[in-house]
Simulated assay, not measured.
Amino acid sequence: MNFENLNLSAPLAQALQEYGYTSLTPIQEQAIPKVLQGQDLLGCAQTGTGKTAAFAIPILERILQNPKNKRQIRVLILTPTRELAIQIGDNFKAYSKHIKISHAVIFGGVNQNKQVNQLKQGVEILIATPGRLLDLMSQGFVRLNGLDTLVLDEADRMLDMGFVHDVKKILTKIPTERQTLFFSATMPQSIRKFAASILTNPAYVEVTPVSSTAETVKQGVYFVDKKEKTPLLINILKDQSTDRTLIFTRTKHGADKLVKQLGKVGIPAAAIHGNKSQNARQRALEDFKSSRLNVLIATDIAARGIDIEELPYVINYELPNVPETYVHRIGRTGRAGAEGVAVSFCDQEELNDFKNIQKLTGIRIEVLSPITA
């Protein structure tokens, strides 16, 4: 299906054409018509599936079809991190290039004055992280009584980072008569329960998790004892000291522990996970992107949305217990035709996870001989 089939308003269609959009992704094809009809939506989709456009485009079209007070917030998009808020803001800026619709992005960790000035001028679309939004609401700078649409993006990550109470507080301050769009990459029982409490007869859309890995990624596995993982990692990193490497752990504690262990042997590294402040995460990401830091350690939820060009190495220090997660992890390298290397460490307890990964991807991952000092 093409965007032309949606019969969008001319200025919106023009911006999408200039942005290079032609065909809809599966999530867009399923979600956009439902959102245009005003339905609530429960969407299961990962970052990288075209999810932002799936809600941003119909939201802009609905505002165009039903213009109101331009100084009143009509749409609120809640997102767990500063990085994601900025990214969504950039998308809205691109799509509304030829439309007089104002939007603002607010997040913590920075001085609020610039954000407050924007709000005072009046905005129709507000993209916010929960903490800063509540803060500005309590100071009287944000009123949500005219809200038409609420979007909760990356809801599972929001819960993981402990924002559920903030979100519930915000929900008490907005009209009950509204359209609600709820997106999550995973749908555990806790998320379904939370979604059921705030959605009214929602349409359910889901994008099948990816199972194929890029052909440009060279994949290998080391079968090692758990206690040998850190020495092996140190040897690999020393062997390729000039290359940026993204390392995945299963837990926040594991990520922090690894940073300390690498620091002791003179390998600078930083960790990003839900317990880190937005400033710390942003700084670590910027240092990594600019190659001031060559080793970044991440948990799966924190790594979502990391888009780094020419990332040569991904290391699975611990294998994920969901095989689709492996595909997402190693998809950080080998992008846009560039070559990449993805290496996994597999101990005795993870053998079953490894077999599931091989079954899902349908490829035989090369067994590597451990590098010794």
Rank of each mutant, 00 (worst) to 15 (best):
K51I: 08
P80S: 05
V123H: 00
G109V: 11
S96A: 09
K97W: 04
V123W: 05
A56L: 08
L16Y: 05
Y21D: 00
T79P: 10
Q14R: 13
I27W: 06
A10L: 15
S102Y: 13
S102L: 07
I99M: 14
D40M: 14
N66C: 06
Q118T: 13
L134F: 13
G20V: 10
H98T: 09
D40K: 01
G43A: 05
V35E: 01
Q30K: 15
K51M: 01
H98V: 12
S138L: 13
P58Y: 03
F107S: 03
A128R: 01
L60K: 02
S96Y: 07
R82A: 02
L8I: 14
A94P: 12
V116F: 12
Q14P: 13
Q121I: 06
T79Q: 04
Q14A: 10
T25H: 11
V75G: 04
Q14S: 14
I63M: 09
I77V: 05
K68R: 09
L60M: 03
A45M: 05
Q65V: 13
K97N: 00
I57E: 04
Q65E: 15
K100Y: 11
T52C: 03
L36D: 00
E29I: 09
A10M: 15
L78W: 06
V35I: 15
G89S: 06
I32D: 08
Q112S: 14
T25D: 06
N91E: 07
K34H: 07
S23N: 08
T25E: 00
L136N: 09
D90C: 01
N111Y: 04
Y19G: 03
N117M: 02
R71C: 04
K114T: 15
P33Q: 03
Y21P: 06
L12Q: 01
T49I: 07
H103F: 14
Q72W: 07
Q112A: 14
G131S: 12
N7I: 14
K68S: 08
I57Y: 00
S102M: 04
G43P: 05
N111F: 04
N5L: 14
V105S: 03
Q14Y: 05
H98R: 08
K93W: 04
L24G: 00
T47I: 13
P67T: 12
S9Q: 09
L78D: 07
Q112T: 14
L134K: 15
V116N: 07
K34N: 14
Q87Y: 07
I77D: 02
Q46R: 04
I59V: 11
A53H: 06
K93L: 02
R132T: 06
Q87G: 03
I125P: 08
Y19H: 08
S102C: 05
K120Q: 05
M137N: 01
K68A: 13
G20A: 00
F92P: 01
K51G: 04
L12E: 09
K70R: 15
Q65T: 12
G38L: 10
R82Y: 01
G89I: 07
I127Y: 04
I125E: 08
I101D: 03
L6W: 10
L119H: 01
I127C: 03
G38Q: 02
N117E: 10
S138P: 15
F55I: 08
V110P: 07
C44K: 12
Q46N: 13
N113K: 11
L119C: 06
Q39I: 05
L8Q: 05
C44S: 15
R71V: 04
I63P: 11
N69V: 13
D90V: 04
H98I: 08
